[in-house]
Amino acid sequence: MAEKKQYNRRDFINNSLRAGIAVSLAGITVALTTRALSGKSVWQLNPAKCVQCGRCATSCILETSAVKCVHVYDMCGYCDLCGGYLRPDTKELNTAAENQLCPTSAISRKYIEEPFFEYQIIEELCIGCGKCVKGCGAFGNGSLQLQINHKLCVNCNQCAIARVCPSEAFSLVSASDAYLYQGKKM
């Protein structure tokens, strides 16, 4: 009898604890879900805050960073002497490797007409180091910008680059408007 009684008490404790847990879990769920009911959020970096420290290239959990340079053509001057494509103080303005600023040669340059050139980012080669971004920002219009490519980003709980970003340029943004590049047509 004593044994059985003890058993029941235990059951009771268990049941009430379970109920307590269930209530708190439900509470958390309700509290948070009401706040989270909006599709999805993703990590993105704000080019206006970016200082091109180079950590996007090295800190992403992916082997080659999900941060890529994007080219906002609307802002581009199509210059022959491109601060983002050519190393400073190159003698010749051509496609020779020694003239290219990009460490992985991820920018292609195409002639349109004198004196205009189109610059395109070869996404597979881009490591997101931001070197060209800095060059373009210093001398050009800033049409080259770093952005997280959402095809590649696995959207970690905590973005590893955001953790080390010195300029707090990373934030969660709504997935429906997942890019923060400048010169966007609003």
Partner: peptide, 12 residues
């Protein structure tokens, strides 16, 4: 010359 469109792939 037609300007290429910017690629902004959607998140998953």
């Amino acid at each position: 010359y037609s300007q290429p469109t910017m690629q902004t792939p959607c998140p998953r």
